[in-house]
Design a protein around this nucleic acid. Sequence first.
DNA 1: CTGAAAGCGCTTACAG
DNA 2: CTGAAAGCGCTTACAG
Lengths: 372, 372
Amino acid sequence: MDNSDKKLPSHAKGKAEPPSPGPTRAKLEDVASLAKVSLATASRAINQPDIVRPAIRERVLRAVEMLAYTPDRAAKALSSGRSHTVGAVVPTLGNAIFADGVEALEVGLGARGYTLILAHSQYDPAREFRQIRSMLEYGVDGLVLVGDSFAPDSLPLIRQHRRPLVTTYVCTSRQNIAAIGIDNRRATYGMTRYLLELGHREFAVIANTGMPNDRSKARLDGILDAIGEQGIRLPPDRIIEAAQPTIVAGREAFRRLRAAHPGVTAFLCTTDAMAVGAVAEARREGIRVPEDVSITGFDDVEIAGETDPPLTTVRVPAAEIGTLAANQLIRIIEGEPIPMSTQLEATLVIRGSTGPVAAPALRKRRPRAAVV
Amino acid sequence: MDNSDKKLPSHAKGKAEPPSPGPTRAKLEDVASLAKVSLATASRAINQPDIVRPAIRERVLRAVEMLAYTPDRAAKALSSGRSHTVGAVVPTLGNAIFADGVEALEVGLGARGYTLILAHSQYDPAREFRQIRSMLEYGVDGLVLVGDSFAPDSLPLIRQHRRPLVTTYVCTSRQNIAAIGIDNRRATYGMTRYLLELGHREFAVIANTGMPNDRSKARLDGILDAIGEQGIRLPPDRIIEAAQPTIVAGREAFRRLRAAHPGVTAFLCTTDAMAVGAVAEARREGIRVPEDVSITGFDDVEIAGETDPPLTTVRVPAAEIGTLAANQLIRIIEGEPIPMSTQLEATLVIRGSTGPVAAPALRKRRPRAAVV
DNA sequence: CTGAAAGCGCTTACAG
DNA sequence: CTGAAAGCGCTTACAG
């Protein structure tokens, strides 16, 4: 305590030196000689216990215990060609949907003896490529990615290294990659159908397609498909493509859309964070939700259920995606086949931010000619 | 697209097989013979370019290019004793404060050629110990942890492996670990002083000390110290120790505290998520913030500025912590000394969720005897 | 079931 | 500045 300087930021005087030498770490050779067996037997007793005679096995395991032996993974990786390591690159950890998926992935991997190497791309394919290359060079046994659009060199590189690959948050890939996730298009299609049934005819969309992003693109498509079926067109100026899926971006987008198109009754957002911003901005402007406008999100992160009103949204089973990604990737690594497509359910969660359109009959029947 | 089954969840018929054989990956030996130099020279041309004659260096680098050579990190690690890998274990990625720190850590590490191995402990010291052991066995060059309380075996194990260690989100350690973070006690001390100056005398605390957690403990201490100086005592039933720092936990804690202690005017929460829940619950109950009660958070995550009213909180410089942790750890790894304590500023961010206590004179002067 | 030995792909003293 | 060779700590055919 007393060496914490009071100025901020501060550097105390105490220095942390690199650790100094001491007793050396035990290696397999030490275990073998203590147990009076060969290196090979020691190795087998540890890795394939039932292939070695019980008495000997016991001796080896006791030696392991006594020496607190812990295998050198680098040596193991080099000689066996397997690192027991999996690489994952996600767009960002800032979105709870990815944070949750990564947590579940790590748990699933750890349970099977695999270690997670993590990187984030900030939605930048070039960055993602570099991360992938670094992981491959690192010797990962497999990779977990997000989505289905990559830098042109990424997939060839992975294939050249012959490493198994699984992609997530989408349920199909056009590039012959096993995919585990939801059908984004269909989810927003369902959401939009629900809004249509509530009587909404005037839509606007806040999409985070600013950064090329196939999930958001699919979500936008689902919306357009559903309203298109009803003969409704969405002029480009009713779609705002936010660069970042943040609360602030949602707030700002709502403000602009509302100002330009006061007649819009339903605002669809492609992420919860943006919807939270839209709801906050609506409140600030004295616009009632859902009486005046309906607002929807996507993801169902924790905050979605806690806004006022709580958000109608789509639940993305992030933890399930992470768990399945771990299991399936390990299965490929270990030579078993897995399905090319695992589609998880994306549930429509109806809460208070949506409601019937106000005076729909009035709005619809009002003859356009009369307005002029 | 057409192989996505329509039932949910579904497994399409297509199977992902393990990758099949193809052209083999180039090794350093291939580079050396293509460049007509020895293995040693090839290695040097790549790793210590200025130690080798320019003409030869060029030849080697050209060969690297032609063969798309990428070094085998496991072999490199085994022969050099350095893995260029750093392990980090954080309590959870679910809290933006850690997600942001991990992102910055990864960027800082990547910029210096280090790869991040990540795990999360779910606030469980035993889990953390296992993660640490696995990383050590993996051969990480150093470790980044959070806080200053660990399972009893963790530190001895790290020291036995002689691996550098840095801890974060706290600015001092009692265990002789270099620490990079804020002074949690002092931050809530300042926050509480501010509330005292607004006239508040009746406090309650929502702390996430349910899981043993030295940061939250320090935050609680800072509050108690500040009010203690004013001769105010905080009965235990005015402190709720939530097990998880979630919105729901904050909401529930606020409800219980308010019901039991209607006279409390200031609710201090040790995380923003819990404060968001408290504000939401206050609104639900028709209690005005800040007119009736003031509520404060801690962390300053994005949502803190977007609630209604926005939260008064303490900004934790998570990205800066992550960046500094990367830099300092690498410095120790590379044999340079670093400060034992790096204290970053935890700024008090005053927003709309706090205000002067309502009719303080009235409240204070009302003779207790009269109530009876 | 066990052991001796080669080999995984690099780095790095040690000579030259 | 360059090269031949040993060695990092394991695994794994290959014999026995």
